[in-house]
């Protein structure tokens, strides 16, 4: 195996030695891009909400104080047994029909009526939510197997652009080596005549509650 490794590396070196070699970069060209003009906090949240719902996800609003109730309302619609991450905030789950993920089997998770999680951040320009296994987000399988995902996004965690999101996520990777999942609407396919159809293997229903949106 080491010999193949050396072979490939030698082939790369031979190939790159031939061409002219532009100077080795120490900074990313990504940072040369002009930043986009900032939006007001309420416009930012508005764009996020609008673009999430364009993916056919339901979007609602709540205050921190009313969050438990807001979640409860949604959960009452679809079933009676939900799962939440092991470290999901206790005050939120007390009143809710939720089981904590304490070593649940895949089958247990899959048979739940849905999952409730927090999130790392939201991206307004693309209507995306990012999970980074931080507090209240759980292991990846938890937000994957149930057919319904209710995701809580704090307004303060919403950024405008993809590069801003990557800047914030650097710490999750470097300090915690966290796995990341970007979610933009419910699972979908465009494989049949290139039309987007919601709902294949991931949660077929995605709902988002935006918490403490300014001006609401």
């Amino acid at each position: 195996m080491t010999t193949t490794r050396n072979q490939v590396l030698a082939d790369i070196r031979a190939a790159t030695a031939r061409g002219e070699r532009p100077g080795h970069q120490t900074h990313s060209f990504a940072t040369d891009l002009q930043a986009e003009a900032a939006l007001s906090p309420s416009a930012l949240v508005h764009m996020f909400a609008e673009r999430v719902s364009e993916y056919k996800a339901w979007v609602g609003y709540s205050t921190s104080a009313g969050l438990s109730e807001a979640i409860g309302e949604r959960l009452a619609l679809y079933g009676t047994r939900y799962v939440v991450p092991a470290d999901f905030p206790a005050d939120l789950v007390q009143q809710l029909p939720c089981v904590r993920d304490e070593q649940l089997s895949h089958a247990d998770i899959a048979s739940a009526d849905g999952v409730v999680s927090l999130s790392a951040l939201g991206i307004a320009q693309t209507g995306s939510i990012v999970l980074d296994a931080g507090v209240g987000q759980g292991r990846r399988v938890l937000t994957l197997l149930p057919d319904y995902h209710l995701c809580v996004v704090y307004a303060a965690s919403i950024v405008l652009t993809v590069p801003e999101a990557f800047e914030r996520l650097r710490a999750s990777i470097q300090e915690r080596r966290a796995p990341l999942t970007f979610i933009s609407g419910p699972s979908a396919t465009s494989d049949i005549e290139l039309n987007r159809v919601e709902g294949v293997h991931g949660p077929r229903r995605l709902e988002v509650i935006i918490v403490d949106a300014p001006g609401r």
Binding site: S28, T31, I123, T126, E167, R170, L180, F182
Partner: peptide
């Protein structure tokens, strides 16, 4: 941060979406 550039270029160029439904990054 280079990935931030390509995560803007790729979904818009390929499926014509602002972002594809799922992206997984593991380390």
């Amino acid at each position: 941060e280079d990935l931030g550039v390509f995560m803007q270029l790729l979904p818009r160029s390929s499926t014509g979406e602002r972002m594809n439904p799922y992206t997984s990054i593991w380390t």
